[in-house]
Amino acid sequence: MEIIQKSAPHLRKPNANVVRMMRDVVIALLPLVALAIYNHGLTAVWIMLAAILSMVGTEYVYYQISDLVNKEKFKLKNKNFTLYNYSVMVSGVIYGLTIPDATPIMIVIIGGVIAVLLVKLVFGGMGQNIFNVAAFGRAFIALSFGAAVGVANFVDSEVGATVLGALSASPFADITVNYSLMDMFTGIGLPGTIGETSAMLILVGGIYLALRKSFDVFVPLVYVGTVFVLSLAVMVRMDLDWWYPLTHILSGGLLFGAIYMATDPITIPVTRPGRVYFAFGLGVITFVIRLFGQYPEGVVFAILIMNMFVPAIDYPQWARSKFSVRSAIIFTAVVLLTIMAIWVGVTYVG
């Protein structure tokens, strides 16, 4: 028998592990995958497969090559191969679900390969990526191939007008004439990307993750809350009805992005106040793009833009793990100023 010397603490929390956290996200996404297949049939199957396999495959090949370069013996099961902790799998599933159904498979694969390679592997693999992999892949194919495949509003849609597309075309016309709020909630048969349309199933997944404590529930709450408050301001200012804020929350990629992409812990700040600022920023950018921007949807861009601010939010000189009175006052002031800016700015829309 041997006595091993280690440093304290000598206990580890039994159910705290990354694999469980990532696996939970995959489980939470399963209903959405099922709905995507129900809505779009084989097309959805191919897109999902292409998205997942392109990402997982890229990571596998990359590590095999880097092992060869380091003159290590070839093994079929790579030691770095991070499939076992589901992290790249999560990226793949999320990426696949954000893709419109008219997208050619080739483009899906290119997006997946580029995203994993440029955002994750080049920066040092798991835990080092500066952007959300899925969001980057999504934005990459939208900007690079949007015109090439002849889809008008590639950022948000398949062929045909989506809810947000219609809202973007005529910002304050009552949308519920064409799309009922109930349809937006269940998401069945609604045009849009293959996995983002059902608010109901996204919420079910979100509740599951919240109960399992596998994500920080503050991020989606503040994110969606910000969009709600800002659209509420517009509603009051433009004398609209309740359909306006509800449409903003239920349609497009907001709920999906808030629950599955904005909560990816690797690319968000680490402190609670930092996460609140981050989620608030997401809400503002998303809403500004939707209201003033050319694209009908801004979730993916908001996430990528705010990802860039993470090192600044986490900067050691000012990042604190609790709200101080001073930071709370400043933050409240910023929130009020933003609402005022939207209040004034909305009159210039259209």
Binding site: V18, P265, V270, R272, R275, S321
Partner: peptide, 29 residues
Amino acid sequence: FENIDYDEEPCVRCGSCIYSCPVDIQPVS
């Protein structure tokens, strides 16, 4: 205690250490 060797994985910045810290510092940072 029976010795258990834990496999360290890359940090995913989940923030549990910050949330749990009794003196409110940021262990991960």
